[in-house]
Write a protein that binds this DNA or RNA. Structure first.
Lengths: 135, 135
DNA sequence: GCATCGTTAAATTATAATGTTTAATTCGAT
DNA sequence: ATCGAATTAAACATTATAATTTAACGATGC
């Protein structure tokens, strides 16, 4: 990894040629390999990019100065109120309105919330910048 | 990798405990291993995080709609003017002043520039947002 | 139907990264 | 100077990921 990224030289080369508008078969011809190979390589490259994004998000969460644990059986509205309260105590200004924060948590929690009821424990991280993330 | 990141479970665990303020030896005790092991694991974790950052920067460069190639023997000031000119043509507003752009390029180019003289070819990518990156 | 183009799956080989230990080293503070 | 805490290096076994091929599958246009 010459550039010190999570992509291999091959993956970078494929992405570069794709970005230049070349078709998969053209890239395959240039690199002297099969279309299937190029396609698979591009796929892995994009997986790695997604992983890199997830990594930075996780790190932000780990570094978050405040984490709020929502217990099972809590109502979603109560959970949101709790988050506001705790952030307030910590002197952090949440950058979301009540409804949009509720949506954010509902989506981030996935199966851990059904309707407005919290089914299993959720950990919510709040960054210094008021960003809210579900762990 | 449960969270689909470039970090391993072990690395995440070490980072989490570190973020909670535990000392290396406390973490070692908890994880049932040596201090050296924890230290090395944390180091690798941070390397991976840096790689993730570099990856996203590279991807932004690859997706950049404009790339300017600076030839050897060019004067740094001329290079900067060239970048402004080409961005202008492409309807992109460079978000840097002349001097700060010169500094940015000088730093990004490393050994490729000595003083104000470009020694070997430099490729500069310009994003839609006017961000400038040396490839 | 049948080319064309691309994606996906499975299997294999090659390559690279991880976790771990031991020992040596660095760094601050006292 | 030395004590405690942390980092680094070297070496190894283990595990994970990459690249590649072949074959099958899925669209899309004619």
């Amino acid at each position: 990894m010459v550039r010190d990224t999570v992509l291999t030289e091959r993956q970078i080369e494929v992405l570069r040629l794709k970005a230049q508008g070349l078709s998969t078969s053209e890239i395959a011809r240039r690199l002297g390999t099969t279309v299937a190979n190029v396609s698979a390589t591009e796929r892995k490259a994009r997986e790695n990019i997604r992983r890199a994004e997830n990594t930075l998000r996780l790190v932000r969460m780990l570094e978050a100065p405040l984490s709020v644990v929502i217990k099972p059986e809590t109502d979603l509205n109560e959970a949101v109120r709790e988050i506001y309260r705790r952030a307030d105590e910590a002197g952090i200004w949440i950058s979301y309105s009540f409804p949009s924060l509720a949506v954010l948590i509902q989506q981030g929690a996935g199966e851990k919330i059904r309707g407005r009821r919290v089914l299993s424990e959720i950990e919510v991280a709040i960054t210094r910048e008021g960003e809210v993330m579900v762990m």
